[in-house]
């Protein structure tokens, strides 16, 4: 177990990088998912088709494949995901702005993949809103966008927040794959380095990695439990 003390810096910096990756991917996934859900319930058929196609493809592909296409497909198409070098944001998250694109590719893969699940969670939330609400909103003359913005989505969020939380927890765990697709120094890559290059025993190292992930996922899980309890009381 001494490896946890001797190489604490590896775990700490790995945790920090994984946390950044998760935070940015969660934002990306929520954006993608909300967009997808809105498309899937929109009155315009082609938009519905795009939304459905997105969910079908990304929910049904293994994450490894999605990562693979992000890390090796995008470069073949000539993209280094430079659009994610967002000014201002890249000074906070330094990995966003560097020349090596693999951190950005990781965000893209995680966001697209998780976005499909977020989309379905939000859509199930929307379905939980009684149809009478949307009908009433239409009756008083709200447009489709206004209807979503002021009536349906605020109520849908409440029903969707617990399944959304589970999706995000799954995403945090999935982020371990990024270390195998070119992201250097995150928890899984750091662990790999410790066990093979430095020859540290595998089990203590992986205990350390598990602790790193639990620090992120366990509080989120507890928070979800609390939200759920609060909601039951409110009813």
């Amino acid at each position: 177990m001494s490896v946890l003390v001797d190489h604490f810096d590896v775990f700490a910096s790995g945790f920090w990088l994984t946390f950044q990756l998760c935070l940015l991917s969660a934002v990306g996934a929520l954006l993608m998912g909300t967009l997808g859900a809105v498309m899937r319930i929109s009155p315009v058929p082609p938009l519905r088709w795009v939304g459905t196609a997105y969910v079908t493809v990304f929910r049904n592909c293994p994450l490894t494949i999605v990562f693979f296409f992000a890390a090796f497909g995008l470069p073949s198409l000539g993209s280094n995901a430079d659009f994610l070098k967002i000014p201002g944001l890249d000074s906070l998250f330094t990995r966003l702005g560097i020349d090596l694109p693999y951190f950005r590719f990781g965000i893209i893969a995680l966001s697209l993949y998780t976005g499909a699940f977020v989309c379905e969670a939000i859509r199930s939330g929307i379905n939980a809103v009684s149809p009478g609400q949307a009908e009433a909103a239409r009756a008083i003359g709200l447009t489709f966008t206004q209807n979503l913005r002021f009536v349906v989505l605020p109520q849908a969020w409440k029903a969707a927040i617990v399944p959304l939380g589970s999706v995000i927890i799954a995403m945090i765990k999935n982020s371990a794959l990024a270390g195998f697709f070119g992201v250097v120094g995150d928890l899984s890559n750091g662990a790999q380095n410790l066990t093979s290059a430095l020859g540290e025993p595998i089990i203590p190292v992986f205990v350390g990695v598990s602790i790193g992930f639990l620090i992120m996922t366990a509080p989120l899980g507890l928070l979800l439990d609390r939200i759920e309890r609060r909601r039951t009381v409110a009813r």
Binding site: I98, F181, V184
Partner: peptide
């Protein structure tokens, strides 16, 4: 700078 210069794959 390791972060911006090194990539590792399997």
């Amino acid at each position: 700078n390791k972060a911006s210069q090194l990539v590792v794959f399997d």
